[in-house]
Design a protein around this nucleic acid. Structure first.
Length: 886
RNA sequence: GCGGACGUGGUGAAAUCGGUAGACACAAGGGACUUAAAAUCCCUCGGCCCUAGGCCAUGCGGGUUCAAGUCCCGCCGUCCGCACCA
């Protein structure tokens, strides 16, 4: 009997090598097999992997290994989302080339992933910064351009005047650039765009088909797309008040029903009418200028006062030409939604009401809430935007809100203004086209050449890739390094041959991640998409990643997949695939308590690594201090593991101490996978103990069990039957739980089975094992090993070898549970009297409802609870419950 | 402001369709083995009255139902997303 501890850190590399030698991780090149494409969102190579990162790869790996064992041809690839700002920041801080920095990180992280034993098809690995990846992306860009799905236009951007670059909205903090701290300016820049708006409707409608996506994500996307049904109304302007060439003003509204409550019209400060009116009105011009400087941050919007300026222009009400309304410029009207102009009904909109009260404009209620009287109802400080009955509304009086919408829209469509209908029904979207230009070096170059004569000319496909220069990069000067490169941008026009200049903007890195999952299906293909391979492998059967990508990455991918399909890169197979990810799972983070000391010089606190902290006291009195000096340390609470808060646990260190299987088991245990899991030393201890426990069980069973491939006994005694049933029921349950990604429940099922297996083994130590029990011990040990294999693959191999096999368990099929063992001969049913549990009844599963009823009514506690009262009704639900109603 | 999710022991959590609430684990307490420790194994473990047994318990208050953690309505709390979107 060998009861040595299992030395995971020493044994795991051995099995990883064995898998490599047997090539178990590679997807098979056989498109007749049933396939399963499992993908975790690929990482940004930021440095090193910590335990927090490892969780979603572990989940994907368990699923992939399980599916492979179930007989699927599994594609489980890995790559690197390798372009982006951190590499340029590192270049600035450490004077290293972004490419070198990135590749060093990739090398380190690849080794870490391998040391976790992830079953990844490494032959398909690529980084988005590889020219053989981005050359295909450049081709896709050109094809989109050809189909008018990419275009160039001038647009307003957040501009950091110090760093000389465009900032995303998220990079603007309190109106200042996140790096430079300089006040952000609004600037007009000519930028490249993808026409995602063309797909607004399809992207919205198709959300309903994504039944294996979290409801939350679908909702967030629907809100983001933001479809609204309304009416575009053209108002005639009075000639004597309006600037020349401004005869009318178009507004967009979702509430044409409230037209009789109109009080004024308002346009954005950037609206052409505002600009025209400001030309000979210095005060108005000043007001518009002030609006332009208004911040766009959340805080700015919340605190900004509603302000306006009367242009003196008046407009005629569409339903009553004699009714004149003033046109204001208002700071809360946005130029880039609808038409940049609104009509205001203060009674029905809080902003309009605040504005009307401030500038003393009329307020006419037009909707009477249900249950209110028209005589007493009035609007004070609160607008009413609900449904009700129309009042003060001419032909709409008495109608419901919905009916009034229809009536107003129809009437507007029938009215004429300069030979066209006054109003037209219109669908509006919040979603805007995707601006992809970035003034950065470390990104995919946009393959365009600007020629003074020929305009923006696509780089001929034969000249791709347009490679980034790697000879000279000056990162110390603000602005786009590509633009400053002495020679890179100089090129001759492909059409006329005249000296021209390359586009120096690079693509948003979200473009890189919008099609990498397609490229994984044929990463070495000469064209961007190998239709056959894409047709076989796509869609991704299970996609796993963080909720932080609920909108941007996932929406961009859904769009880009459609766009490239429509531009000639559709997957083959006649599936007319539109959605790239059939199932999505958003996993929770690993959290860890974080500690800090206040910064004596003020500013950001100094974060302390948990390993340097010691504790005293408990509960509220729990105190933390530096272990070395005893200096007090503040406990910041539970935070997501992140490098900046120093509360990460390095993966290499963990694996050296405990082994990869302990890490895998720990991140799968306890918390449901979609929720955060708290990293604690005792939690890790628990996982480590279980690894040893499984090893002891199998080791012990291997000694006691019959040899492998022994003949199955004809009969089993009751004790061995109990163990057999437990094993097969667990097998069935674990499979279902992995399939449903309920890893924490699968873990609990295995703990449970380990307990039962352990008890059975203990009994044999006392009483010895019968021949049939010896056979069952082997069966149980083998099933146990197979059940843990997706989650703790190294340990499973070790156990498999201990059980006498010289094959790899990674190549074994998932065993089928014997159905007969999953059903019991007897069932235990709770018996209630008037809904209160009084006893339970164990009876044959074949018992009829009336048998059950009779047996239940004969139970002593039932008779006692009834206390002689007559039975009115007995509800019998076989296998579940009996309820006696008295 | 709009939209959504969640709320179960000391802790992380289980609980197909509405059908025995608390599986499994952690922590805690007790015991066995040991010269001792580690490791391991066994027992107890929601609260109250404690006696077989009973009563109360899934944030709070109602409702539907033979039966509610689960469904419906209203509160309270926590978290998340969007946000001057006409």
């Amino acid at each position: 009997m060998a009861t040595e501890r299992y030395n995971a850190p020493a044994r795991e590399p051995h099995w990883q090598q064995a898998w490599r030698d047997a090539n178990v991780d590679a997807a098979k090149n056989d498109t007749t097999l049933p396939k399963c494409y499992v993908l975790e969102m690929f990482p940004y190579p930021s440095g090193r992997i910590h335990v927090g990162h490892s969780r979603n790869y572990t989940m994907g790996d368990v699923f992939a290994r399980y599916k492979r064992a179930k007989g699927f041809n599994v594609l489980h690839p890995m790559g690197w989302d390798a372009f982006g700002m951190p590499a340029e920041n590192a270049a600035m801080e450490r004077n290293v080339h972004p490419g070198n920095w990135t590749h060093e990180n990739i090398a380190a992280m690849r080794e870490q992933l391998k040391s976790m034993g992830f079953s990844i098809d490494w032959d398909r690995e690529f980084a988005t910064c590889d020219a053989n990846y981005y050359e295909h992306q450049q081709k896709l860009f050109l094809d989109l351009l050809d189909k008018d799905l990419a275009y160039r236009k001038s647009s307003k951007v957040n501009w950091d005047p110090v760093d000389q670059t465009v900032l995303a909205n998220e990079q603007v903090i309190d109106g200042c650039g996140w790096r430079s701290g300089a006040p952000v300016e609004t600037k007009e820049l000519t930028q490249w765009f993808f026409r995602i708006s063309k797909y607004s409707d399809e992207l919205l409608e198709a959300l309903d088909t994504l039944d294996k996506w979290p409801e939350k994500v679908r909702l967030m996307q629907a809100n983001w797309i933001g479809r609204s049904e309304g009416v575009a109304i053209r108002w005639a302007l009075n000639d004597d008040t309006a600037p020349a060439d401004h005869k009318e003003l178009e507004v967009y509204t979702t509430r044409p029903d409230t037209l009789f409550g109109a009080s004024f019209l308002a346009v954005a400060a950037d609206h052409p009418l505002a600009k025209a009116a400001a030309e000979n009105n210095a005060d108005l011009a000043a007001f518009c200028e002030e609006c332009r400087h208004l911040g766009t941050s959340v805080a700015d919007i919340e605190t900004a006062e509603k302000k306006g300026f009367d242009t003196g222009i008046t407009a005629r009400h569409p339903f009553n030409p004699d009714w004149e309304l003033p046109v204001w410029v208002a700071n809360f009207v946005l130029m880039d939604y609808g038409t940049g102009a609104i009509f205001a009904c203060p009674a029905g909109d809080q902003r309009d009401l605040d504005f009307a009260r401030k500038y003393d404009l009329p307020v006419t209620p037009v909707i009477l809430p249900d249950g209110k009287s028209a005589d007493t109802f009035e609007i004070n400080d609160e607008a009413f935007d609900g449904d009700g009955t129309m009042i003060n509304s001419d032909f709409m009086n008495g109608m419901t809100t919905d009916a009034a919408f229809e009536a107003a829209a129809d009437k507007l469509a029938g009215l004429q203004l300069s030979d066209a209908p006054v109003g037209e029904r219109q669908t509006n979207y919040r979603l805007r086209d995707w601006g992809i230009s970035r003034q950065r070096y470390w990104g995919c170059p946009i393959p365009i050449i600007h020629c003074d004569d020929c305009g923006s000319v696509p780089v001929p496909a034969a000249d791709l890739p347009v490679k980034l220069p790697d000879d000279y990069i000056d990162f110390d000067t603000p602005g786009n390094p590509l633009d400053r490169h002495p020679t890179w941008k100089n090129v001759n026009c492909p059409i006329c041959g005249k000296p021209s200049r390359r586009e120096t903007d690079t693509m948003d890195t979200f473009v890189d991640s919008s099609w990498y999952y397609v490229r994984f299906t044929a990463p070495h293909a000469k064209k961007p998409v190998d239709s056959e391979q894409a047709g076989y492998w796509l869609p991704v059967d299970q996609y796993i990643g963080g909720i932080e990508h609920a909108i941007l990455h996932l929406l961009y991918s859904r769009f880009f997949f459609r766009a490239i399909s429509d531009a000639g890169h559709a997957p083959a197979g006649g599936k007319n695939l539109r959605e790239p990810f059939a199932a999505l799972f958003t996993q929770g983070m690993v959290t860890h308590e974080a500690y800090f000391q206040p910064n004596p010089e003020g500013g950001k606190p100094i974060w302390i690594e948990p390993s340097k902290v010691s504790f005293s006291g408990e509960g509220k009195d729990r105190k933390a201090a530096l272990a070395e000096s005893g200096d007090p340390v503040e406990i910041a609470g539970i935070e997501k593991m992140s490098k900046s808060k120093k509360n990460v646990v390095d993966l290499d260190e963990f694996i050296n101490n405990y082994g990869a299987d302990t890490a895998r088991w720990f991140v799968l245990s306890d918390s449901p996978p979609e929720r955060d899991v708290l990293y604690t030393d005792v939690g890790v201890e628990g996982a480590r103990r279980f690894v040893q426990r499984v090893w002891r069980l199998i080791d012990d069973a291997a000694d006691k069990a019959s040899p492998k491939a022994s003949e199955k006994p004809k009969e089993f005694n009751s004790e061995s039957t109990i163990l057999r049933k437990a094993a097969h029921k667990s097998l069935d349950a674990v499979g279902k739980h992995i399939e449903g990604l309920r890893f924490n429940v699968a873990v609990a099922t295995l703990y449970d089975f380990a307990n039962q297996f352990g008890s059975a083994l203990q009994k044999t130590a006392k009483d010895g094992a019968s021949d049939d029990m010896k056979w069952v011990l082997r069966e149980a040990a083998e099933l146990m090993t197979q059940m843990i294999a997706p989650m703790m693959p190294h340990l499973a191999e070790e156990c498999w070898a201990r059980l006498g096999y010289n094959t790899l368990i990674a190549n074994q099929r998932w065993p089928a549970a014997e159905q007969a063992l999953l059903v019991d001969d007897e069932m235990t049913i709770a018996v209630q009297v008037n809904g209160k549990r009084r006893d339970e009844l164990t009876i044959s599963v074949s018992a009829s409802k009336s048998d059950i009823e009779t047996a239940a009514l004969a139970l002593e506690p039932v008779i006692k609870a009834l206390d002689g009262k007559p039975v009115k009704k007995v509800i019998v639900v076989p296998k579940r419950i009996v309820n006696v109603v008295a």
